[in-house]
Nucleic acid binder design. Structure first.
Lengths: 358, 358
DNA sequence: GTCTCAATTGAATCTAGCA
DNA sequence: CTGCTAGATTCAATTGAGA
């Protein structure tokens, strides 16, 4: 049996490099392939600064057919090096994830979950043309339908305050000290947060397992693998990224305790927008809201805004405007009349939370 | 021109039925196709009861190829009936959504967002073998890359308490009174919540628009369309579902006209030329305008142009030149000093609009 | 050292209408 | 079709300067 050399970066094309590795040799593959973003032009923020977008050559493909051929080729190579009971994770956005998911299924991989990384702090949609693109999608697959893959169910449950870990993960994007910079400029345009890899590796590997990342970049996968006592192999085409990754991982001390548990346990805050009660039918558009003394009246519009005379705004804004105050908590200020009695809309929010088990 | 018969259920195959409708005739398509969801065997809860899973004939496809052929066929028919500036929504899970997304892109639809419906109360994973499948995915597309699709950005923002609506939507699943039951048994296995359709229709349609649902089921799309004053067409293959939908929608009262109003977008407001304020005497020629930080100053000329040093131009051009920015909204950039306080000229535009009853 | 406020930034398919 | 111009448009987190 060939001894597999681990804990190193292989410089080169990921398909060739994977084909040079022994078959069925790695326990987990984490792959962050190019997203094929297809940006048409420069984008400016409302205040005038230019958005530093991903516009690198490695993310450019002529057509979907070209992208599909590339995707199938690297996935086929990944299938060969993966152990029969190993699993593969890929990450992407709507630009590419449907192509990747289709290719995975066509190659015989078995989808176990699609996981949503809900970004706590995404970039907004500056032009007001679409919904804020606030998530990325990961696909988790075993090698075949009947594979006996490894899943640390209880570890995931523990990580989630003893509730089953769900398919949507709220995690911040990679910023601050964690973001690697060279002379003040980000070293890689799409560095992933360690918290994301931490959860993936903890869910699907044991200490001593071998983790392969064919699109290594600045080596987040390797860094977290070392931290958690897993072996790693990174493949990276661009030397500048490979060097950054090697240095980063070499300087890292493996983890002794649960230093990272803090970031992982952050749970979604159950914020409820007033509009949710309108959508849900608990408050119908056209309903009149009044304050506790019945001095002010406003009408609910279909989008959850309030209308008072000529003024339109949120429950908080209209509440403030009514009292000529700088601010107002609309949830406690406004009431609905039910059977002659005034019920604060905050009561209805509580009922909504209860019904929705938030 | 053929008058399109709306507000009715068409009984039959959705591909044939769509092909019988006039081309480019509907404003929005919402499609909840079969998920190709098959449990290999019955699933039992830990305490022994059997899970009532989707196991109907309409959700059975032998292979991915069969499912893909079906998907491409109905999407092609949908493409034909959709107006050029209309949009299409589809919903699915990891079993089918990658196939649907790939087919959409291959047929020339242009993905605008993928939206995550994050279920507030999903069914747990009883076996503890995977992550709780706690979301479904919607894909929102325009008919082509350069289509001028309709999106009620401000209404969505209002619905979310004045923050941009994100691509992850937290909504409860359809339960309780809303879930239609016949003799205590749920009438349809995959009834969608009205709150989901409410948000989709409010985002992408205007009152009077025509909404088509080719997989109508028990008619949630029609019910919400009627509530919001939109016309609807439902296509359903199974008579039992069609009858339930017809009865459900007939019993429903739509909102009154005023209640359907949503916050108007700024782009829909009538235009006011800066020169009109000068003509009107609200701003005198010679007045000095400054930015909010008092860094830049410009002088108003008699024709409504601005003069800054050697440069003359519109409020927008001079604002952009001052900041060396590619563009600038002069209405919010420039201010007039009144009694020591800075008032944005946009405030004066609002007053002008009010006075002119524009 | 501590607080406040302004500036910066992140995988982005990012305008509309008229001549 | 191109070209031009008006003018609409951002959330959360971190950093760093200045009080």
């Amino acid at each position: 049996m060939i001894k597999l050399k681990t804990d190193r970066v292989i410089l080169g094309d990921c398909i060739e490099a994977m084909n040079a590795l022994p078959a069925k040799s790695v326990d987990l593959i984490f792959a962050d392939p190019p997203y094929n973003l297809q940006l048409a032009q420069d984008l400016y923020r409302p205040e005038g600064s230019r958005v530093d977008a991903v516009n690198d050559d490695w993310d450019k493909f002529d057509t979907f057919a070209t992208y599909d051929a590339f995707t199938r080729a690297w996935l086929k190579a990944a299938h060969r090096v993966l152990k029969d009971d190993g699993t593969i994770w890929t990450i992407g956005s709507y630009h590419n994830i449907f192509r990747v998911g289709t290719a995975l299924q066509d190659l015989g991989f078995w989808v176990l979950n699609d996981i949503i990384w809900r970004k706590a702090n995404p970039m907004p949609n500056f032009k007001g043309t679409r919904f804020t693109n606030a998530h990325e999608t990961l696909i988790w697959c075993s090698k075949s339908e009947d594979a006996r893959y490894h899943f640390n169910y209880t570890a995931m449950k523990a990580l989630n305050e003893d509730l089953q870990m769900r398919s949507d993960w709220v995690l911040p994007i990679c910023t601050g000290n964690e973001r690697i910079k060279i002379d003040g400029i980000k070293a890689h345009p799409t560095q992933k947060p360690e918290s994301l890899l931490y959860r993936v590796l903890l869910a699907c590997t044991k200490p001593g397992d071998i983790v392969l990342d064919p699109f290594f970049g600045t080596g987040t996968t390797g860094a977290v693998a070392k931290l958690l006592g897993r072996h790693w192999i990174g493949i990276e085409r661009e030397e500048k990224y490979a060097r950054v990754a090697e240095k980063r991982i070499a300087e890292l001390l493996p983890l002794s305790g649960g230093a990272m548990a803090v970031t992982a346990s952050a749970r979604a805050q159950p914020r409820v927008a007033f509009g949710a009660l309108v959508e849900n039918g608990m408050i119908r558009p056209g309903t009149e809201l009044v304050d506790h003394a019945r001095r002010f009246r406003a009408r609910v519009q279909a989008d959850g805004s309030l209308n008072m005379g000529e003024t339109v705004g949120s429950i908080h804004q209209i509440g403030a405007a009514a009292q000529k105050a700088p601010a107002c908590n609309g949830w406690t200020f406004w009431h609905v009349e039910q059977a002659g009695k005034l019920v604060p809309i905050d009561t209805m929010r509580a009922a909504y939370r209860q019904a929705a088990a938030l």
